[in-house]
């Protein structure tokens, strides 16, 4: 904790003003979650009453227990993990390869194919619902991990992200390796991919989040509660007339936790890993 070891710039970084600004912004960003936590420990009557009660008084930990009685939470958690792993691995492999090709390789129709892939981002996902359902149905994959996960392993977003990442990496190493006689796959796998680790970490986080919260698609291709991921299970708690909000919030807190932990672990890699890919 010796201040002398810090450069003047680094001391400036820790001024009261900086921490005040960051603290205030941080509080604004996180305030809705604090409230969500409070709601998850309230009674439904307190949530529905106006003016709002900011503190429930008697904390209703039972809401968290109710999550497990109302939902096959562990089954659904397993499904969420399963489909997310499939999608993340699929996207990391496919998107980094395609992204690399679009960034660094020359081939006929490169621009056209990139435009085609990007165009699928521009259509609302609801458009794909019925055609994709029919494909998955015809493949006999309704109610399966693969069926839920399959369309999501192809990602225009991921291709675009990885293309941008590879575009930002220096050319020199690649050229050196090529002169050494490495084939394109070796160059990609041994040299460029390690350099892209921070970008891949970002892709992992973003894909995980998207997959974890994906709602409409899994609801449509699964039929029974124990085959659904957590996101869909959570939604079934919303009634047509009344909703038990505290239990829903408790379930949502439980569902969010693993992603938050993953981020806490990965954010160091995203940030520190990037120090190696200094672009100069």
């Amino acid at each position: 904790m010796s201040k002398e070891s810090l450069s003047p710039a680094q001391q400036g970084a820790n001024s009261v003003r900086t921490h005040l600004v960051l603290g205030i912004i941080g509080f604004v960003m996180v305030f809705p979650f604090i409230w969500q936590l409070v709601i998850s420990l309230s009674t439904n009557d307190q949530v529905m009453s106006v003016p709002p009660t900011f503190w429930p008084g008697d904390l209703q930990w039972g809401n968290f227990v109710d999550v497990f009685t109302k939902l096959p939470f562990f089954d659904q958690f397993g499904v969420s993990v399963g489909i997310t792993v499939i999608r993340v691995i699929g996207q990391v492999v496919l998107c980094s390869m395609a992204g690399y090709a679009f960034a660094r390789m020359r081939f006929r129709g490169r621009g056209v194919f990139l435009a085609v892939i990007l165009s699928i981002l521009m259509v609302p996902p609801q458009v794909y619902l019925i055609p994709q359902f029919q494909i998955i149905q015809n493949l006999g994959l309704l109610n399966t991990f693969i069926g839920i996960a399959l369309p999501g392993i192809f990602s225009a977003f991921g291709v675009f992200l990885m293309r941008q990442i590879f575009l930002g990496l220096p050319l020199e190493l690649e050229e050196a390796a090529r002169l050494d006689g490495a084939n394109p796959f070796q160059i990609f796998y041994k040299i460029m991919l390690p350099l892209a680790t921070p970008g891949i970490s970002a892709l992992v986080i973003i894909t995980t989040l998207w997959s974890w919260n994906d709602l409409l698609w899994p609801l449509v291709v699964t039929t029974y509660a124990e085959k659904m991921p957590v996101s869909a299970g959570l939604a079934t708690l919303a009634g047509s007339i009344t909703t038990d909000y505290p239990v829903m919030m408790a379930a949502s807190v439980l569902a969010m936790a693993p992603v938050l932990i993953l981020f806490i672990i990965l954010q160091r890699r995203v940030v520190e890993g990037l120090a190696f890919s200094g672009s100069k």
């Binding site: 912004i25 941080g26 809705p32 709601i39």
Partner: peptide, 28 residues
């Protein structure tokens, strides 16, 4: 900023809204 204390803590705070499920935060 180099040398910022609690940097990862702030980063987690700023990132939390992105994890949110729309239906849950919408109520709040």
């Amino acid at each position: 900023q180099p040398g910022l204390k609690f940097a990862s803590f702030y980063r987690v705070l700023f990132f939390m809204p992105y994890i949110a499920m729309p239906t849950a935060v919408a109520l709040v």
